[in-house]
Each structure stands twice: as structure tokens, then as C-alpha cells.
Nucleic acid binder design. Structure first.
Lengths: 166, 166
DNA sequence: ATCGATATAGTCAAAATTGACTAATCAGAA
DNA sequence: TTCTGATTAGTCAATTTTGACTATATCGAT
């Protein structure tokens, strides 16, 4: 759901059409996410179906029509929910593309802090688990060591973020 | 291609059938990759089509037949190529699931070292680029800072790995 | 004014991925 | 022994994702 979070978050700032959204993401968030154009349109259509956003077709001359999207009241509620979920959950497979960070400033620092505390707990647990993997399991020692390092970096980062907020 | 690299690498060690492969990956490499069962079978079929592996159907009583896979000579060549590509390339979107590490010990330390040197160069370049992003670009400062940290961790890790090998 | 190159805006068929399923076997409890 | 739940082995339809495409507009050079 973090792609939906991103699209909602951007549209909440400014109404945009599909191409514009995709361009923005491609220019400013490459390091964060790789969202292909057709996927963006696909997600937008799905979100429109669910009533999270509405489309306004604008015809200009002979051009292909542009569909500008606006976040609905329901979409706003979904954004709020997704943002909180994203911040509180520890997604084990990604230290990159932490979309929630982009919209952290839309929350009260105290609430943001509480959500990150939940995440930190899960992160700590995983780090302990990884450190507890016996040497002669089927998994590669290098892979485990590598992961432990990034988990530690993530933990340090969260610690600092939490401190900044509190 | 790193899923193919993984499957080839595992099959190169021991012949296995699809379910076995999936189980092994799921038990020992969760932190590394999330390969769903149907995707595993899909990839195996594709690899068999390309002649990288061969299937041997074994019927046992009334069971659904098991297809045991073996790496062909061509598959072995592809494995060697994919491993080298994987080690030398800096994949910007993942600090997790570095499959190449699992099979690093199949190379001569000196060659492994050379490949990782290429990767380190690309990594350094990205870190510089990320650090050079102006504060008032469209991207979130937190996201950039977050990425820079993990890139630095990755760089330190590579430095150490390279030293260990040289 | 016109030609080519690039930017804008979106679509589509083909390929890949997934959740949910079938179906047989096995291990232990009643 | 027979029932139940877990394990083994793989498949399938529906959903998602992608590369390649259409088509107009715009901008700079000739």
C-alpha cells in the first residue's frame, strides 16, 4: 500500500494529473521508489474506483485529454490511516523507499514519535532474531552479517529520529 | 535476474525439485528474498525452456509427480555470468537480499575482490550524488538522509569485505 | 516556414506475480 | 483403525506489472 500512500500524499498537496505525478516521482524520488508509468495509471484508476480520488477530465484543443485527480474526504481518511500504518510497521524487506518519512511532518511530533516507537520495537526484535541464527543454518553467513549491519543502521536512524521528535 | 542466480546456485549445489527449493529458500533466506511458490515454479519452467536446467520427472506411487532439476553445462555458464554481474553491479534499490554474497565463496578471492571494487565505485558515485541533492529539491530531506546512511553502511561493508578478500 | 528532436499524455497486449486452490501422504490421537 | 491436522507437491485464474506503442505539442535550428 505504500504506493497508494505516496500518490495520495502528493495529490493531497497539489492536484495533479497522471503524467505530472509520474514525472514528479521520477525526478524527485528515484532513490525511494521506482513507479512505472502504466503502474501509476493503474493505481490511480483503482483508487478512483474505490472513491479515494476523483477525476476531472480537461480537454485542451486536440491534445489527449488530461485527467486531473483530487483527493476525496474518504481518500484523506485513507491517507491518514496508511501513513500511520506505514510509520508503525517494520517492513523487513526495505531500508530504502521509506515513503512514510516524506509525510512525517503532517503529524504531530508526539504522535509520529509514538508510531516510530512501535516500529523500533519490531526492528529490535528482528535484529535479535538475525543475531540468533546459528552459524550452521542453511543461510549464508555473509548475507546474515550484511543484514545485521543494515538493521543496526536502521535502528540508529530510528533512535535519532525519535529523539528529534521527542 | 537474481532470482535465477539463486535458483541456479542452489541447484548447482544439490539437485532439488520445486517444492524443496521453495522450502529451502523460505526457511533459510527469508531475510534475503521473498520468492512465492508459483513464482518459483514459473522461473524454473522458464529456465528449463532456455536450457539452463533439465527436469527429471519421478513418479512415486499415487503422488503428484516430482520434477527434479539439474543444472546443465549452459546453466553453469549462465550462473558464472550472473554471479559476476551481480557482484559487480550496484543495484540502487536494495541493501537486502544480496544474493551474490551467498555464492561469493565459489570465486577466487582475487576475482571476487575485483568485482566488488567495480561495485564500490558505483556505490561511491551514488552516495556523492545523494549528498549533492540541494535542500530545496522536491524530495524529502528525511528520505535523502535515510538513504545516505544506508549507502554509507553499504560502503563500509564493502570496504571491509574487499579487505577480507585482499 | 519547416524539419527533427524532445516533451507531454496516456494506452495496450504480453508477461509476471499472487492468493487460493487440489490432491495425495503422513504422523499421532482417540 | 480411523479420524484430524499438518506436510508435501504442484496448479490455476485473477490481478499486477511492464515494454513498447500512439498521438499531439513544442522548441530550436535551418
Amino acid at each position: 500500500m505504500e504506493r497508494e500512500l505516496l500518490l495520495l500524499g502528493l495529490l493531497r498537496r497539489t492536484d495533479m494529473h497522471g503524467y505530472q505525478l509520474h514525472e514528479f516521482i521520477n525526478q524527485n524520488m528515484v532513490s525511494c521508489i521506482d513507479l512505472k508509468k502504466p503502474t501509476a495509471y493503474f493505481l490511480l484508476e483503482k483508487m478512483a474506483d474505490k472513491g479515494w480520488i476523483t477525476q476531472t477530465e480537461t480537454h485542451e484543443g486536440n491534445r489527449p485529454p488530461r485527467r486531473v485527480y483530487q483527493v476525496t474526504a474518504e481518500g484523506e481518511r485513507v491517507f491518514q490511516r496508511l501513513l500511520r500504518e506505514n510509520l508503525a510497521e517494520h517492513h523487513p524487506a526495505r531500508f530504502t523507499g521509506d515513503i512514510g518519512l516524506t509525510f512525517l511532518d503532517t503529524l504531530l511530533p508526539s504522535e509520529a514519535r509514538d508510531l516510530l516507537l512501535v516500529r523500533r520495537a519490531a526492528l529490535r526484535e528482528e535484529l535479535e532474531n538475525v543475531r540468533a541464527i546459528p552459524v550452521h543454518s542453511g543461510s549464508s553467513q555473509l548475507v546474515i552479517e550484511h543484514r545485521a549491519r543494515h538493521l543496526q543502521t536502521e535502528l540508529d536512524w530510528l533512535d535519532e529520529l525519535i529523539e528529534r521528535l521527542g
